[in-house]
Amino acid sequence: MVRVKSRYLLCEVNATDRNLLLLLDDRAVTVAVKDVVQRIHGDYGAALCSFGFSVKYLNAVTGIIFLRFPKRCYKLLWSALPFITSIEARGKKITCFLNCIYVGGTIRTCQKFLIRYNAHQLRRMLPKCKNEEERRDVQQAILDCCLTRNHTDESEDALESEEDE
């Protein structure tokens, strides 16, 4: 048997107002993506999208989304994503755009990439800290993610919570 293959897109939601990002949920993103695919590729695109497309993971605090597309048509569906200008969530319109930062064949590689990416973000954050407290927090977070990465690959949940600062 040949298994069903898919592609996972790691997208970052960039919005002008970051507080509105907290309103995001799976349904809103699904509706927004299906809507834009329908608008760009018509009924054919909507049909491709209805099968095998899902939002696998969503982090409302950092605005990170994993989208799953069937491998056969992921390029076509992906090409509709740049046309998203707003996502409607809980009655409010969030003006934003999706920035795809990684495409992976498995969710595991995507997660690995995300961890590396977030650790890198922390390091970029460090010189921009305003006060001493922030600085200590970020340093602690960097230290933690270095330790977890060296010891085990598993305990990523702890890591995730650190990166939200």
Binding site: K75, S79, P82, L98, C100
Partner: peptide
């Protein structure tokens, strides 16, 4: 506007349209 910018990978894929 800043919101009309897109990431490099998105643009690369957009060019297939």
């Amino acid at each position: 506007k800043a919101l009309e910018l897109r990431g490099p990978h998105d643009v690369m894929n957009l060019t297939q349209l």
